[in-house]
Design a protein around this nucleic acid. Structure first.
Lengths: 186, 186
DNA sequence: GTCTATATAAAGATAGAC
DNA sequence: GTCTATCTTTATATAGAC
């Protein structure tokens, strides 16, 4: 028994980090358990001590992301003005896109995950609720489409070469400005 | 010899249509030759009369798209004012995203294709050139990132539920408005 | 907790008949 | 131009030793 119950770099966590990197680079479907095992320095069978199936690995890799998105919405609900809610949602999504960009890109774009989450029914519900929260129950189509372009373009914009000369703060600011323009909040 | 040399629904074309639909729905890697053959009503071996490899099918499916993007840029180069060039590029990309949306989404997002095109070196070059054409040689980062969000978000926004109530013209208009806002052209 | 070895299914691809 | 049959490789997954 360890005297330190806090999270260390246990085998499981290391596997997840390796898997996420490969998923983001090659796509989930193209990443075999053999690839993950090789990269992690274990054998394929060794993975099965930690996980029963590949899907279990996938879901565990994306778990932090799947939790982070509703958390953003909950924080936004605590605000009373529309402006504050918009900023909380846009800012929260930008944080995720910038600092967990691998996971965010996989979550938003990988076809394997789309199927695994059942055509993303849960994702769609979260997005509907979040959209309604910041745009109101009956927003004009232009604004809704602007928001759709923001969420769909965020992962790509976050890893665009145009970001490289900017520091962290400028990156957040630039992406926030994109969102505000699309939602006509500037 | 046929009296009608024009394009009919030959076996090859039908295979491409089937393949594109499956690629867009499940991703390229998750779509096996068996899947395509089943859907097209032939056997797996039958595919190999038309194509030597799966990659050949993939590239042939995406060929119209890979040709359409540079064509947009060439049309834009014919204009002299920046405004006209911007509208030609944005409008051209919107046309593709709306009317060849399956192919466009696959082209922009599928990890299999990214690898097949060699980390998309050719795509990156096209995008650099197009970006420079409409933004000038040294655009401010905010505008470049806005353009990145547009191209990356276009496929997703084009198939967002918010599009359904709109007719074709309104859809084009809404997406164009997104682009103009991101580029501060309104 | 990680290994060797193996089972089983499915992938891409080819040979050759019709 | 499409088929049946088959080859080879690789995928997920399991059994059981250490």
């Amino acid at each position: 028994m360890s005297a330190v119950p806090s999270r260390r770099r246990t085998g499981r966590d290391q596997l997840l980090a390796v898997a996420l990197r490969l998923f983001a680079r090659d796509g989930i479907q193209a990443t075999s358990l053999q690839d993950i095992a090789d990269e992690a320095g274990v054998t394929k069978a060794g993975l099965y001590y930690h996980y029963k199936t590949k899907d279990e690995i996938v879901l565990d890799v994306l778990r932090p992301l799947l939790d982070a998105l509703p958390a953003v919405t909950r924080r936004a609900e605590a605000h009373r003005t529309r402006t504050a809610r918009v900023d909380e949602v846009l800012g929260g999504l930008i944080e995720i896109a910038l600092y967990e960009h691998s996971g965010f890109a996989v979550l938003m774009q990988d076809p394997y995950l789309t199927r695994l989450l059942g055509q993303q029914e849960s994702m769609r519900q979260w997005w509907d609720g979040t959209s309604t929260l910041i745009l109101g129950p009956d927003p004009d189509p232009q604004t809704r489409i602007g928001l759709a372009m923001f969420i769909n373009g965020l992962a790509g914009a976050g890893r665009d070469p145009a970001m490289t000369p900017l520091d962290d703060r400028s990156r957040r600011q630039a992406l926030l400005e994109c969102g505000r323009r699309l939602l006509r909040c500037d």
